[in-house]
Design a protein around this nucleic acid. Structure first.
Lengths: 198, 198
DNA sequence: AACTAACTAGACCGGTCGTCATAGTTGGGT
DNA sequence: ACCCAACTATGACGACCGGTCTAGTTAGTT
């Protein structure tokens, strides 16, 4: 039978937003229900697995969304260094316009629920991996050797994640800007070295 | 008047441990009480500010402890690159021996409570800043210009934090090892450049 | 109309944080 | 030696909110 309401979608979106900014345990189901405007009972109809299932699906959605944003931001860039620069600008904007609330949509949940729930941990891991893959593929596409590109993608991702964490703690984007600078020079030197050896 | 029990210390240690591995909201006060073996009432005697005060003090303690470990690990190293390498080995060991539970002692709380509570956020920020300072001072001591050293310290800290996050998500130390490799070469090149310009 | 799938409201139990009246301990004053 | 005031410590208690589930209602299909 056809779907009669959009409750499911609304619940998922609200949940993704709340898990993003607050983490798993800090987010109550009542809060999700209120924020989404959906009726309480619908929650266990659409997500019989309860909070855990809801979180896993919300995280998959968040991960996929950011993956798309990432690949789009990266696709149009003239070179690798400015591609990463564009991503950094985007994230800095996201963080500041939300008063340092919205950093990485998976990080908070990763740290406060990954140990409790394997499905949730896997959803997070898949998200990170998809972002890493986008970066690695992009670097490879632009001429870097596969192993080099893979390692660089991890470093880029890790330092961005750490930068977001430090920025959130200090209410200051300086860490992100420092990371952006560093990544810029790192990527440029990596690519020029690669060009000179080919 | 002299203290008659060590309840306060035990509560603080248990709390630090639990906040470290679970974050703020996932950690219940009853859990802290049980783990510490201290009576419930003692909690609000020693920490009249409740959970918030307990967390702030526990985080300050964790931050200070890691700061000491850090400066000690760094002090005996022959050069900057191997100093950071030693720190990485230490963190990788901590993470694996705890089955990917113990990463950064502040990160989980930063992400799930910094938005709610300013005292907690500040305790986290101070912790990160103390670590950053240890690194920056060390780099300066070893001959790097102050601004260079500061930026490098931030990048080192951020990429380690991000590496810990990714490692925890994936149950895999590869991100940390990739970060370690990258930092090694980065620091070496930074220092040789500095040596050549002096 | 009868049936079935889609959906919803509210009750439930367990655990949360925080409070309070009470008990125990200590050291100074007499 | 005794006592009292101040300090330290405690666990039972309660108001409340958490996630979960069952019993019921609505809407579409045949």
């Amino acid at each position: 039978m056809a779907r009669r309401t959009d409750s499911r979608r609304r619940i998922l979106e609200s949940a993704a937003e709340l898990f993003h900014t607050q983490g798993y345990h800090a987010t109550g189901l009542n809060q999700v229900v209120t924020a989404s405007g959906a009726p309480k009972g619908s929650l266990y109809f659409h997500f019989p697995g309860g909070k855990e299932q809801l979180a896993a699906e919300a995280l998959r959605m968040s991960g996929g969304d950011l993956r798309d944003v990432l690949s789009q931001a990266v696709a149009g860039a003239p070179d690798a260094a400015s591609a990463v620069g564009a991503v950094m600008d985007l994230l800095i904007g996201l963080l500041t316009t939300s008063a340092f609330q919205r950093g990485c949509p998976l990080a908070a949940v990763t740290l406060d629920a990954a140990a409790d729930s394997e499905p949730i941990r896997l959803a997070c891991a898949e998200g990170y991996d998809s972002w890493r893959t986008v970066l690695a593929d992009f670097f490879t596409e632009r001429g870097l050797a596969a192993d080099r590109a893979g390692a660089l993608a991890i470093v880029v991702l890790a330092s961005i994640e750490g930068g977001l964490l430090l920025a959130k703690a200090g209410h200051d984007t300086a860490p992100l800007r420092a990371v952006a600078d560093h990544l810029h020079t790192t990527i440029e030197s990596e690519f020029t070295r690669c060009a000179s050896t080919t």
